[in-house]
Amino acid sequence: CSVCSEPIMPEPGRDETVRVVALDKNFHMKCYKCEDCGKPLSIEADDNGCFPLDGHVLCRKCHTARA
């Protein structure tokens, strides 16, 4: 995971895991958050999703503030 540096592995008792890929980086679902404010990001293409800027994973509000 690009945030916590832990491997993305299935939880005990499970055969599969879910990971998020954004900007060629891999994330646990729980680690997929705005780099500035820490708001959890949605994997859907909506207002709560990722608004990347200069290689950073940001929420819409933080993207607008940086732009």
Rank of each mutant, 00 (worst) to 15 (best):
E11V: 12
E6G: 14
S42M: 07
D54S: 06
R19D: 10
L23C: 12
P12A: 14
S5C: 12
L23H: 15
N48K: 14
P7G: 11
H56N: 06
Y32S: 02
A65I: 05
D36T: 08
D54Y: 04
G49F: 04
L58Y: 12
K61A: 10
E44Y: 06
P40M: 13
R19E: 15
T17F: 07
C59N: 01
T17C: 15
H63K: 04
H56L: 11
F27H: 01
T64Y: 11
K33I: 10
A65M: 12
L58R: 06
N48R: 08
T64N: 07
R19M: 02
H28C: 14
F51H: 11
K30M: 04
H56M: 09
N26D: 13
C50Y: 06
F27D: 02
P7Q: 01
Y32Q: 02
E44G: 08
H56A: 12
C62P: 01
V21D: 15
P7K: 14
D15K: 08
V21Y: 06
M9K: 05
D24I: 00
S2L: 01
F51A: 08
N48E: 12
C62Y: 01
D15Q: 07
M9H: 08
V18E: 15
C4F: 00
C62Q: 00
D24P: 02
K39L: 10
F27G: 01
K33E: 03
K33H: 04
D54K: 08
R14F: 09
G13K: 08
A45G: 15
D36N: 09
I8R: 01
E35M: 06
M29C: 07
E35H: 05
T17L: 11
D15G: 10
A22T: 07
C50I: 10
F27N: 00
K61L: 07
C50A: 13
R19G: 09
R60E: 15
T64F: 11
Y32C: 04
H63I: 04
P12N: 10
T64A: 13
S42T: 09
V57D: 02
L58W: 03
K61F: 09
V21E: 15
M29P: 12
C1T: 00
K30V: 06
P12W: 02
Y32F: 13
R66L: 09
C1E: 03
D24Q: 12
K25Q: 05
D36R: 11
V57N: 06
D54E: 08
E35D: 06
S42P: 11
I43K: 15
G49P: 12
R66I: 04
V3N: 08
S42D: 07
D24E: 13
Y32D: 00
G55F: 04
K61P: 11
S2T: 12
G13W: 03
P7V: 15
R66M: 13
V18M: 11
V21A: 15
T64P: 06
N48G: 12
G49R: 13
E44M: 05
F51Q: 11
E6V: 04
C62F: 00
C31M: 01
P12V: 10
K30W: 05
R14G: 04
D15T: 04
L53V: 14
I43R: 13
G55H: 07
R66Q: 14
K61E: 15
E44Q: 09
V21W: 10
L41M: 12
R19L: 09
R14P: 09
L58T: 05
C62H: 07
R66G: 11
V18W: 09
P10A: 15
C4G: 00
K61Y: 11
V18Q: 15
V57W: 05
C4N: 01
R19W: 03
M29K: 14
M9F: 06
A45S: 14
S5A: 08
K33T: 08
P7Y: 09
F51Y: 14
A22E: 14
V3C: 07
A67S: 13
C34K: 01
E16H: 02
D15W: 04
K30Y: 08
L53Y: 13
C50S: 10
H63P: 02
G13T: 13
N48C: 05
T17V: 14
N26T: 13
V20W: 06
G38P: 02
S42I: 02
P10L: 14
P52D: 14
E35Y: 11
E16Y: 02
P40C: 08
C59D: 03
E6S: 11
G13Q: 05
L53S: 07
E11L: 08
D47Q: 08
D54R: 04
G55C: 06
T64D: 15
A22L: 07
K30N: 10
G49T: 11
G55A: 08
N26I: 14
E44K: 14
K30S: 11
R19N: 07
C34D: 02
E16K: 10
L58S: 04
